[in-house]
Computed example of a mutant assay.
Amino acid sequence: MKRTPLYAAHVKLGGKMIDFGGWELPVQYEGIIEEHQKVRNAAGIFDVSHMGEILVKGPDAEGFLEGLVTNSILKTKENQIVYSPMCYPNGGVVDDLLVYKYSREYYLLVVNASNTLKDFDWLTENKGGQVEIDNVSENFVQLAIQGPKAESILQSLTDTDLSGIRFFHFLPQTLVGGFNAIVSRTGYTGEDGFEVYLEAGSGEALWNRILEAGKEEGLVPVGLGARDTLRFEAALPLYGQEISGEISPLEAGLERFVNLGKDGFIGKEALQEQRDKGLKRKLVGFEMVDRGIPRSHYEVKLNGKTEGFVTTGSYSPTLKSNIGMALINSQYAIEGNEIDIEIRKKCARAKIISLPFYSKKYKK
């Protein structure tokens, strides 16, 4: 398995290490529920160095990317970030990614860890014009500091006014804890927070400095378990669950990130047809009425017939109930409808509720 440069730091902190898409990463330290609640009420720090970074540069970089992603980047300003799916011709999702714009000729793509090589190959296969594509993932450590106290903790380590970084914007170069870094403000938890990118060799030192700086404010290290429950409560998609090569962004409820009004991009025709004909499947949220925790891939049934499947399900530490998201037949995707979740070969009742389960508290 691959390891991030912070592996030794995780082991020292008592992190329970697991295989996550070929990476050996901490699933938890003190406990998933405790770490989840710390992020909601104070702050948590995550090692997300397994994420991929791909540089796209050259005179034709902007036009090239515009033809690949479903969202539009043409009106994006420098130091702004765009979230977008990237699709196959059939409308299925290659990956969902963050596009960091330095200039019209220089972009940094932040992609899902398990998709990094696939994304790089997809970009390379579809390359046109004067464009260079470089996989620079091994150059970076990426730390995420999330929670209502994230800004004050990180501010103690830099002279840069972090309040000036707007949501989905970044600073291409600033000093944090004495290290040169890229600092952005996006997040994957439903809380305000920052991402800090720096050279791999400096990652563990900055990780330790941030932990020390946040000790009195309640900052804790957080593993993959709480990262998943946090993003899930905020109804943020996870590749391979809410979106995949077989699930389109429209089916996943991401239509605001699909600009069908822009010039051609890969997958546009298929997505246009889905919208025009009406979606056969839709993503819904649900809460269990009967006892039982829904899990990914459990079948959703109505009148004994399978009408979809659970994409993500879990106990919610914030709502203190068992909830889930499911991709189901559109005709049944109505708030208030009851559905059955097959849990260990027995059907348990659930009720469709609105998404997200938890309202985001991002700084705008």
Results as ranks from 00 to 15, higher is better:
K2C: 10
V11L: 09
L13D: 13
K16H: 14
G21M: 02
L25I: 15
P26C: 08
Q28K: 14
E34F: 01
R40P: 09
N41T: 14
D47I: 03
V48L: 06
V48Y: 01
M51F: 05
L55G: 03
K75S: 15
Y83D: 02
M86K: 01
N90A: 06
D96R: 00
Y100R: 00
S103E: 05
V110Y: 04
A113F: 02
S114V: 14
L117D: 15
K118Y: 13
K118G: 07
D121R: 08
E132G: 02
N135L: 06
N135F: 09
Q146S: 10
E151M: 11
L154N: 04
Q155S: 14
F167H: 15
L175Q: 12
G177D: 08
F179K: 10
T186Y: 07
D192M: 03
G193L: 02
G193P: 11
Y197S: 06
L211Q: 10
G214C: 00
K215Q: 14
E216K: 07
L224S: 12
G240T: 09
Q241L: 08
G245T: 04
E246R: 09
A252Q: 07
N259A: 00
K268N: 13
E273D: 12
G278R: 10
K280E: 15
R281V: 09
F286A: 02
V289P: 02
S296T: 12
S296L: 00
E299N: 07
V310K: 06
P317H: 11
L319P: 07
S321D: 13
Q331Y: 12
Y332W: 10
I334C: 01
E342W: 06
I343N: 03
K346V: 09
I353F: 01
L355C: 03
S359V: 11
S359F: 05
K364V: 14
